[in-house]
Design a protein around this nucleic acid. Sequence first.
DNA 1: TAGTGGTCTAGACCACAAT
DNA 2: TTGTGGTCTAGACCACTAC
Lengths: 272, 272
Amino acid sequence: MTRRTPGDGGRQGRPLYIQIADDLRSRILDGDLEAGDKLPSETELMSDYGVSRIVVREAVAVLQAEGLVTKRHGKGTFVREPQPIRRRVVGDVHAKRHDTSPFATAAKAAGKSPEWEYQTRHTTASKVVAKRLAIEPGGPVVRTQYRFLADGQPIMLSTSFEPTAITGGTPIEEPEAGPVTGVVPRMDSIGRHITHVVEEVTARAPRPYERETLDIPQGVPVMKIERTYYVDREPVETCDIVVAADRYALTYSVPVPARDSEGTSGSGPCGG
Amino acid sequence: MTRRTPGDGGRQGRPLYIQIADDLRSRILDGDLEAGDKLPSETELMSDYGVSRIVVREAVAVLQAEGLVTKRHGKGTFVREPQPIRRRVVGDVHAKRHDTSPFATAAKAAGKSPEWEYQTRHTTASKVVAKRLAIEPGGPVVRTQYRFLADGQPIMLSTSFEPTAITGGTPIEEPEAGPVTGVVPRMDSIGRHITHVVEEVTARAPRPYERETLDIPQGVPVMKIERTYYVDREPVETCDIVVAADRYALTYSVPVPARDSEGTSGSGPCGG
DNA sequence: TAGTGGTCTAGACCACAAT
DNA sequence: TTGTGGTCTAGACCACTAC
């Protein structure tokens, strides 16, 4: 490692904390340090590399931001262990049925009843929600916030919006208060069969509230799914789902038409 | 703000840098500071809050990790501006055709020819790749790495794998060297019509190589798409696609079957 | 009690960008 | 030249965890 004199500001090479981070990273990726292993303490790293504590801390912060390590107060810094992944499969053409409720299904498979907390409010549509529901901004909607739990621990957040124009006055006006639950059965019960679902997936750093509620470590982003249910071209419900990205994989299966007469389908390389 | 005496370690409240971060965050979210606006300099924040520089820097680092601000050396710290989003739509039931090459389509729509660089290698399948292609580990594959460019700037990385057992000896053995390009047309040309595509979406912090190549700022994760093309149940190509999460939204449209006799489809609340 | 990471001060020199 | 963020030192007290 290139050692620099105090205060030379980097003339002799890259910053020390970057060099140390690189060194530690390769020790992790090469398998020298395995998942769950403890990194040398800050004191050890200080003497190992002959630098001050802040340099060591910045180096470790780099690895933490990359999601490679986790710090535990009073215990040390550890190589992050891979999280168990929940697979959320949508639209598998080979499945007997389409599973639009993987949370409930997974919970049942594990012998647990799916649990969630919710809070329903009658309110008005914001500009964004109005656009997704194809209604006028300010129009009446029913908003329900969910927290889904596994072993009592929140693992998914969701907020749904339904236009009162569709459900108002029916037994299912409030999603969790009627005789039927589940979006598709509920809409079926008032004669509206949902024909398709559109999901828009993005990812970003978690908000402080999400970090706290979902117990998300530094360096782990969230995936946000904007899901909208349609009856033909009419949106009947839309919701935002937020999950920790290290615990979920979203799988989509999409058919390719028999032949593309226009010759543009799949015209690029894989990913293009 | 709760001021603490030096070295009291937090008895009187939350850490100073958290309080300062909270204050700055609310000034951003309340619209007091808008996208593109410059935050007070570190020197100003030091005197504004009466703390040392490291506290100010940690506070700003929090906001940076949340993706709210970007630092520019020699200029200042700025509220991040929303990035133009490329929408990648897969499986829209109302579209005339399925667009499996949104990159090329988007480039053409903008009046530019899509550009990419690639590098093809004959190699053997790793355990992971073998599993995705349903072949034996160590089996021969053709591996092609792509960098997709817009205005000369890389915006997407992709690595594809095709088993030589399928393409070997045909004109399309190497994806970019044959008479036909594009996964679907290429496979069509050797009598294998792709029936469906499976995409598995995850998100994580970018690797150093990805940060550099794709020019990803602090606090922005990447989305990784594992895409596999199938002829019936036989995988014929798989690839990994990596994009910056603040510049892409992945949209999937999935049909819901006419009626679910087993009564489990959509049985949970939205997101459940 | 000892070791760990968490927070904080005071001060220094540096590289980058605009004027 | 001035102001910005980038890197770094030396030292302090604190809270958490395990023994």
